[in-house]
Design a protein around this nucleic acid. Structure first.
Lengths: 212, 212
DNA sequence: AAATTAATCAAACGTTCGTTTGGCCTGAGA
DNA sequence: TCTCAGGCCAAACGAACGTTTGATTAATTT
């Protein structure tokens, strides 16, 4: 029995997953179509058939990652809760998401600064929504409560970069010290970021869970 | 009068600068040799003549950036000063360096997670030295003084990513809000990082300059 | 049963890639 | 003055690039 109709989604998904793996490992431009379809186990022409072009494949990876990131931001930040509780919730969820989607994260960050006109609008559209949320749910409340003014266009990159640092540097840090990285689990890593953000590097763990 | 002998350094430098500009703008793999030599105003074969290969050019950019970063780390971190003072000094200098070399920074970060075997050893070699310094001058003293244990293989990426965030996200954030980014000067940006790292996002500026 | 649709394939498209070659020109040293 | 080395150049190299084409297959629809 031939499951061709069912295989539509299957082949498409195999290409998608192979692209995430290879784009993260070698970079988008360094990954050739032939290497990609070999990894996915499909014919060369299937990429253009399902995604229109190689760039269309990249766009879909970007969209997939950003939309998930945005959902997490909305779920954990929007509301009238305590600012610290919201921030802690968000960071734990976001770091978990980055860990689960670390390959997509690497692709997104690596392509971030490049100015391909076809891609940059995609990124800006997603970033605009993210900055909006961070502004309303973190920066504005922070200014009201403590008088500290941190523009959201400045804080959003800082927060995202901070949470992403572990996954970006992993390939290099593994060569520096194998044991060093693995001694910090993802949960501990998220906790560390929360503590630093709320109290600085010298802050005690106890004060984090307590409200301000 | 023909200054051919003097132009050796000149042509080499023009290629080097053009590469930094274009690799940062389009990415390493997306930048073609012909586009590169057009920007530099030299002949196509000059890149291989001076740098051996396109990758040799990338290696030199990496080396140039990392060596400068390492010098700043040694100058500002090594010594028996107060931990907070050292950290503040380092962050101000490093952010200034990132700003001056923002194009190289973008190249370094973008190429960081990719596993080209010819390049990854270069990065690991530099990173090893950086992690060593951060460990001895920040992580160990911090653990002694406050009992907070942050592995240097975890803190070095965090600190570097945090300081780099502004320059990585600039192309996207400019599209999000032109005014938002420029309202924060590089000096203010460095100050913000220092405050957050020492006291968290709610900390007051006054306490930063005061010793702990 | 015939027509239609969607997935798949091998093969080739024209282009661009990084690199190499071999010769030319000029200033410096013998 | 002759030699020589180094900066420079136009031209071409084979390989790899992303994409397109046209045919084939099998499941679905009419």
């Amino acid at each position: 029995m031939d499951n061709r109709k069912h295989q539509k989604t299957e082949s498409r998904e195999r290409i998608f997953q192979a692209a995430i793996t290879l784009f993260a490992r070698h970079g988008f431009a360094e990954t050739g179509m032939r290497e990609l379809v070999a990894e996915a186990g499909v014919n060369l022409s299937m990429v253009n058939y399902f995604f229109g072009s190689k760039k269309g494949l990249l766009k879909e990876i970007l969209d997939s990652f950003f939309s998930g990131y945005l959902v997490i931001a909305r779920q954990n930040l929007v509301g009238d809760d305590d600012l610290h509780a919201k921030l802690e919730r968000f960071i734990r969820s976001a770091v978990g998401y980055f860990d689960a989607e670390k390959k997509s994260l690497i692709i997104v960050i690596s392509e971030l600064p490049h100015d391909d006109p076809e891609i940059v609008e995609y990124k800006a559209g997603w970033a605009r929504q993210m900055v909006e949320i961070i502004n309303q749910e973190i920066c504005v409340p922070l200014a009201v409560e403590t008088g500290q003014h941190i523009p959201s266009t400045c804080f959003t990159p800082m927060l995202t970069s901070l949470m992403a640092s572990r996954f970006l540097f992993t390939p290099v840090m593994e060569k520096v010290s194998e044991s060093g990285l693995k001694s910090v689990t993802v949960e501990v890593y998220a906790k560390m970021i929360v503590r630093i953000l709320l109290q600085g590097i010298a802050g005690s763990d106890d004060e984090v869970t307590a409200d301000l």
